[in-house]
Nucleic acid binder design. Structure first.
Length: 410
DNA sequence: AACCACGACAACCGCCTACTG
DNA sequence: GCAGTAGGCGGTTGTCGTGGT
């Protein structure tokens, strides 16, 4: 347990205290921890505001809850994430987005805060290295985004000019994209920071839309399939920057630029919108999933997702969607012919170097995972229970990239 | 030794939702 | 139905430790 990391110079501020008292902030002391632990032992979890009232602990209820949940409660697993855990996080994030609490539910003993910190650190590292945020195990077609109803929540920042997303032009075959020159990792952030990305989404940056042209072939999906981004709809659910920036060709340029070991997809990642960038990348993969569902005639009731009364339904749906059977994979593959080719850089040693304590983890985010499993995708039972081993011997469930509950953009 | 970059981590903040009276 | 409250969640910030130069 780390205590008083900051030297115990906790500020003294009111922490939304209902009694108006001055509540302590900052690192917890061992004595405070002991008080809280004793209280929870006696009274159980919950009613956190009562902790202060009953114990005199000068901490607000929120702070107590957080302290307990993240550090004091039993069965917490400390230490570095295991290889399996890391892979699970990556996979679950691809499915769920920044739903840290729900991701942590799949990782016993791990807290949402811990996972969030891990992920954010990973994102920064990946971007700095110019690597894709997700393992390059799935092709990344553009999101066939076609929300049926009103937005989950309006973006706090204005959506991009809709003319940029004219569905007609998007669905036309002349819509192509080329990347700016590949960057060395050391250059990436610099350029990213210079890019005046729109909501952290460089693809949608007006200044970039000019040179960017998206080629269906570049995406690598069947050009004959009509792309329906849903932009033409009077209402669309997601904040604009959740549309993929990486509507790019992983598999074209990466192979071409294997000398650089740089994923050109990432050259546009903004320095400030790391998570947004991540969302966009995941969104691309979600598009894959949604496309499949459209083809399969499944319902995608996003309209209910913002309705609190249907929140449980939504989560149930999410959980169901996590548990996709192998047939879904086959469906996906049918949609994306000839694309599952790991870029050459993926097999090289220049991949992500895990954090020191987790260096045993994986082979650069397992960019070959998908490939390895392509021949015989396993049956995806419950996410919690089903995994299989990749060639590293690590349990790994590639899952799918449904992302129906894309987090709002704040 | 000093400096810097980076990662890891803890904690706070603001918003949202559920609950309760 | 409404307002107040508590709890949960995600985003962000600040601090410390470590390794490299």
């Amino acid at each position: 347990m780390i205590l008083n990391k900051g030297g115990g110079t906790a500020k003294e501020e009111v922490c939304g205290g209902s009694n108006g008292g001055v509540l302590k902030k900052g690192p917890w002391s061992a004595a405070e921890d002991a008080v809280l632990v004793d209280y929870v032992k006696l009274h159980g979890e919950g009613n956190w505001n009562a902790v202060q009232r009953n114990t005199g602990l000068q901490r607000c209820g929120k702070s107590c809850r957080l302290r307990w949940a993240n550090h004091l409660r039993p069965n917490l697993k400390k230490g570095a994430f295991s290889s399996h855990e890391e892979r699970l996080i990556i996979d679950l994030h691809a499915k769920l987005g920044n739903k840290w609490a729900r991701i942590s539910a799949h990782l016993p003993g791990r807290t949402d805060n811990e996972i969030k910190n891990y992920w954010n650190t990973r994102v920064k590292r990946r971007i700095r290295q110019g690597l894709p945020l997700y393992p390059n195990d799935l092709p990344t077609p553009p999101p066939p985004y076609n929300p049926p109803t009103l937005p989950l929540s309006l973006p706090k920042t204005p959506p991009p000019t809709l003319s940029l997303f004219n569905p007609i032009s998007l669905s036309s075959s002349v819509f192509s994209l080329h990347h700016p020159p590949p960057l060395l990792p050391s250059q990436t952030l610099k350029r990213c920071s210079q890019q005046n990305s729109f909501m952290g989404n460089p693809v949608f940056s007006p200044s970039q839309m000019g040179p960017f042209q998206i080629s269906p072939m570049g995406f690598g999906f069947d050009p004959g399939r009509k792309l329906d981004f849903g932009f033409g709809s009077p209402s669309f659910e997601l904040p604009s920057n959740q549309f993929s920036q990486n509507v790019t060709s992983n598999y074209v340029e990466e192979v071409e630029d294997d000398d650089e070991k740089v994923n050109p997809n990432n050259v546009g990642l903004s320095n400030s919108g790391l998570l947004d960038d991540l969302l966009q990348e995941a969104q691309v993969k979600v598009g894959l999933k949604r496309d499949r569902e459209q083809d399969c005639g499944l319902q995608w009731d996003i309209s209910s997702s913002e309705n609190s009364s249907t929140g449980n339904k939504k989560e149930e749906l999410e959980d169901q969607l996590i548990n996709i059977d192998s047939q879904d994979l086959s469906n996906i593959l049918e949609l994306i012919p000839s694309l599952v080719q790991a870029p050459s850089w993926c097999n090289e040693s220049g991949g992500e170097s895990s954090a020191p304590q987790s260096s045993a983890v994986s082979t650069d985010d397992n960019c070959n995972v998908f490939d390895d499993q392509m021949p015989q995708p396993p049956s995806f039972a419950a996410m919690n229970n089903t995994s299989f081993e990749d060639d590293d011997g690590d349990d790994w469930n590639p899952g799918f990239y449904n992302w129906d509950n894309l987090p709002r953009i704040c």
